[in-house]
């Protein structure tokens, strides 16, 4: 079990834009470096990338949620 942590505080998004599919669905395979979400911080968007490979389990925060630096955003298996 690996967690993807937020590098910065801000607002977390699970999709590239409203109406677009989520970056990852439960069961998707994840390669190291895959984008799993976006963080809006000070009007700038930063990609959150997986640092390990595995299978996507779930997001730990909702789309549009305020998050802190270091907060777990998603869980991977394997």
């Amino acid at each position: 079990m690996a967690q993807v942590l937020s590098p910065v505080p801000g607002t977390f998004y699970t999709q590239a834009a409203p109406g677009e599919p989520q970056f990852k669905q439960p069961g998707d395979s994840v390669a190291s470096g895959d984008v799993i979400g976006l963080i809006e911080v000070m009007k700038t968007f930063i990609e959150v990338k997986a640092e390990a490979s595995g299978t996507f389990k779930k997001f730990l925060v909702e789309d549009g949620a305020a998050i802190n630096a270091g907060q777990p955003l998603a869980e991977l298996e394997g």
Partner: peptide
């Protein structure tokens, strides 16, 4: 600005 000019101006709130 709260940005790191050595890191592509990454925002730096805190």
């Amino acid at each position: 600005n709260a940005e790191d000019p050595m890191m592509q101006f990454l925002p730096s709130p805190g």
